[in-house]
Design a protein around this nucleic acid. Structure first.
Lengths: 135, 135
DNA sequence: CAGGATCCACCGTGATACTG
DNA sequence: CAGTATCACGGTGGATCCTG
């Protein structure tokens, strides 16, 4: 769906041939293609705490590279989930903050995080049991 | 976290250095590393409709290869989200069905799908606006 | 400080062939 | 039918250097 803007931002995964959920596209992949990469949720979580500058995000998210932070924020901006405010000062300053839609997505992420916490031990247990049986 | 079972199932993404969400690991990546790949959610959605055989899953999910279906179901089994029942008949038959924990994760996925539907147009609009401005 | 541009390594995925 | 095994490709992300 949507003509890919090959020129500007490197895209993530390609489309899935046909939709599941019966026979219509329930569009779940749209969200997960956005959330599924390595950094998007982390940026989302950090921005849910408030407005952040580029450097602040970089420090708040250990391990992220400048390149990936740029790409991630840019994709979020493109999708209308994050707003960018540039102050043409010297040195330059750029503020990032969630749009209302971005906040609502962040809420979904927190719900997922809750699920993750609630089932962390159960998953770990099942996993070690499986590893035990399949060694 | 968790010693990777290098021998059996190819793993997905590696771990993130340190946790965000303040300074403790909120574990959100655990879920998204599972959901973030190309096929897991589709299998989850299909199995949420009921018990399915291997071939049935393959047909229900257009575009998936045998290899990826095997890998995906195996990972889901390992994590205790899916149960596998093998009938040693000829030809063989294998049933897959969600565990209670798997069902609860599927519910999360449906919540995400709802969000996706609700904001699909807004995202598309923001995207085309962005593409317009950055051509 | 806030990026842009390039090169490169890894691994998730697809295609194909084979097995019990 | 329900997998396993092997090979090859493409994209994501990391590292590094450069700019305004």
């Amino acid at each position: 769906m949507s003509v890919t803007n090959t020129a500007v931002i490197p895209q993530v995964n390609g489309p899935i041939p046909a939709g599941p959920c019966g026979d219509d596209d329930c569009g779940i992949r749209d969200v997960l293609d956005r959330l599924g990469d390595r950094w998007t949720v982390l940026v989302l979580v950090e921005l849910s705490k408030g407005t952040r500058r580029f450097r602040e995000l970089e420090r708040a998210i250990p391990g992220i590279s400048q390149r990936m932070l740029t790409l991630t924020t840019k994709r979020l901006c493109r999708d209308g989930l994050v707003e960018r405010t540039v102050y043409p000062t010297i040195p330059p300053q750029t503020d990032y903050r969630l749009t209302p839609m971005g906040k609502s997505l962040a809420d979904m992420v927190f719900a997922l995080a809750d699920w993750s916490r609630d089932h962390k031990e159960a998953v770990a247990a099942a996993r070690s049991r499986w590893d035990q049986e399949h060694l």
